[in-house]
Amino acid sequence: MMNCKQATELMSQELDRPLAWRERMALRLHNLMCRGCHQYRKQLAFLRMALRSRAGGD
């Protein structure tokens, strides 16, 4: 199974490129079982939203 270090790498890349189907499935499976990574993904989404709101997007 994918570990958290690899999962965090994919969660970052997911914001920069479309993930392959296999990557998406592996990540989803990992996050179903890992509360830490589940939170991490939400927090990355928050960081992006915060930065975009700062940059005049509305």
Binding site: N3, C4, K5, Q6, C34, R35, G36, C37, Q39, Y40, K42, Q43, F46, A50, S53
Partner: peptide, 24 residues
């Protein structure tokens, strides 16, 4: 941040942030 197997070290595992939207 991670243990030898690449899983979150206990003290660094992310926890829920309280009301992040309010912080903005």
């Amino acid at each position: 941040l991670f243990d030898q197997r690449g899983f979150w070290a206990t003290e660094h595992r992310p926890h829920r942030w309280a009301d992040p939207e309010d912080s903005l």
